[in-house]
Nucleic acid binder design. Sequence first.
DNA 1: CCTATCATGTAATCCGTTACATGATTAT
DNA 2: ATAATCATGTAACGGATTACATGATAGG
Lengths: 199, 199
Amino acid sequence: MSTERLTPTSYLVLGLLAREGPSTPYALERHVAATLGNFWSFPHTLLYSEPSRLEALELVTETRESDGRRRRTFAITSAGFDELTAWLERPARARTELRDLGLLQLFFMDLASEEAGTRLAREQRAIHQAKLAAYEADARIERRGGHPASGLRTVEHWRGATLPMGLLYEGAAVAFWQGVADKVVRPDPAIEPNGREPG
Amino acid sequence: MSTERLTPTSYLVLGLLAREGPSTPYALERHVAATLGNFWSFPHTLLYSEPSRLEALELVTETRESDGRRRRTFAITSAGFDELTAWLERPARARTELRDLGLLQLFFMDLASEEAGTRLAREQRAIHQAKLAAYEADARIERRGGHPASGLRTVEHWRGATLPMGLLYEGAAVAFWQGVADKVVRPDPAIEPNGREPG
DNA sequence: CCTATCATGTAATCCGTTACATGATTAT
DNA sequence: ATAATCATGTAACGGATTACATGATAGG
């Protein structure tokens, strides 16, 4: 009778527990930070509270150390696995939520100064360029078979499933903000040699 | 003394009131649905509750009809305008939140059947193709000077500020899911020329 | 040793979502 | 007239964020 509404976070936890085996919230956090967390933030407290909810629904079990740290370890139940696979068999139809503070600001930039637009465009371009570079580094590492001391299989999944989308998105974002910068910054179409940046 | 934390929704409301003048929540809703709502959902109730919060902070004022419908109309105050422009002058540094149920499912697709992967890829490709087509239609309408009976200036801003990003994103998404489909679906490389979607 | 950082957790708050409901307007 | 849709609003619930706090480990 676990016909309660499950959230994306629920499925994230179920999926990780199913694939990686019994885990502590901290392990979940590390895994998420290296993969999906790149573009979908899951604050660490969520990885503590969500498993508790799932336990109430008997989709996961909890065991806890009795000594000092009292670590909690969660494991998926067969009911949880069923719920997860049922969800995976039913393809999502929801549209993408693309929440970007920069875009929101840009949408209202006609209300602000010209310099504000310039600053925004440059800042955003830099942010997305950095992210793109990080993704490309991930992709390179993966192509070499992965660094033994690091993510291993984790990164494989990341790459196979979602890293390419990250690359595509950040590439598009860089192009977009470059375009904005080009239009906002009228003078000097040649990139100024004395490019200085505010902190 | 309105040093309370404002949310993105707060700035959305402030910005619309600043640019469009005094508005009812319904007017805000319509405006949002035609523009930012394309990739950032703001449920209509938010456009009722958020202005109320802002009124408590004296960033907007409320006037209300006394007759049958008792419509509420909100207007930005000068304090509100100051808050808005101050925000716009401080460029956002937050990273993009790209929340996509489809990507989440894909991330765990190794736990499901092959057909599930196929279904997901096709479904997502169709969704993004449809959105891309809609954006392209918007862009065409804009290029012709806009339809007099429709969005007018609104659409101009949409196009100038954020429609290009929508086009870029959806283009990337279509390419991505096409790639997923190509890898997941082995047999029958011939695909129907026009991907359509069910109502 | 001391301090910084990592690791681990709880609790309160509040925004956003969902559910519900009814007054107007248009179409048939 | 009646149904359907548009327009407008309130209230409750709960997940997500923020704030807080302390136990371990490593570095100097």
